[in-house]
């Protein structure tokens, strides 16, 4: 029973003190579960991280589920996941309760957010830019990325449809080039 409290508390602390999204949480998770608690070996953690990135959903949640499962099975996964999301949940609920009423009639907050809104757009643009550069600026990734952007923005295609189509294209073109190579 003690291990459940321990893993809950570990992920609760990580969830409460990492600002900047899931990727910012990874070094803290590693420090806690690999170095301090020794629940997962270092090389196993690296492999698990690669898998957590290829699964859908927030990477911090995927990692929490994996570590929990490794320790005590699915019940422990639920506990570690709740530990990771609870701090976010509590903080955001408090802000939503307060901010939703505050912004509508507070002139100071409205001024502050007039400055923040365009900067948030820039903060989302930069990672997309970096990912495109890291992908090597080759024809195929650029073609897929551009097509995805255009069909979402111009044709209002759902991003879900785009993801499914892109996955199928990746699978078919991979199998096709494998067939060419083996001949």
């Amino acid at each position: 029973m003690r291990i459940y409290f321990e893993i809950f508390w570990s992920f609760f602390k990580i969830g409460a003190f990492t600002i900047g999204g899931g990727y910012a949480m990874i070094p803290l998770i590693e420090a806690e579960v690999v170095n301090k608690k020794k629940w997962v070996a270092k090389d196993e953690f690296a492999e698990m991280l690669a898998l957590a990135q290829s699964a859908p959903g927030p990477i911090a949640i995927n990692t929490a589920v994996f570590v929990g499962h490794k320790l005590k099975g699915w019940r422990c996964s639920i506990v570690s996941m709740l530990g990771a999301i609870l701090p976010s949940f509590i903080i955001i609920v408090f802000i939503a309760l307060f901010f939703n009423s505050a912004i509508k009639n507070n002139e100071v907050i409205e001024r502050i957010f007039k400055g923040i809104r365009p900067v948030v757009v820039a903060l989302i643009a930069v990672p997309a830019f970096n990912m495109l550069i890291n992908a090597g600026l080759k024809f195929k990734p650029i073609a897929i990325a551009t097509t995805a952007t255009l069909v979402i923005c111009l044709l209002s295609v759902s991003p879900i449809i785009v993801m499914i189509t892109a996955g199928v294209i990746g699978l078919v073109s991979g199998m096709y080039s494998q067939k060419i190579n083996s001949q």
């Binding site: 989302i124 643009a125 990672p127 997309a128 990912m131 495109l132 992908a135 195929k140 990734p141 650029i142 073609a143 897929i144 990325a145 551009t146 097509t147 995805a148 952007t149 979402i152 923005c153 991003p159 785009v162 993801m163 189509t165 892109a166 996955g167």
Partner: peptide, 9 residues
């Protein structure tokens, strides 16, 4: 690459 396109959108 589709993920990059999604973020750009």
């Amino acid at each position: 690459p589709a993920v990059i396109g999604l973020i750009a959108a």
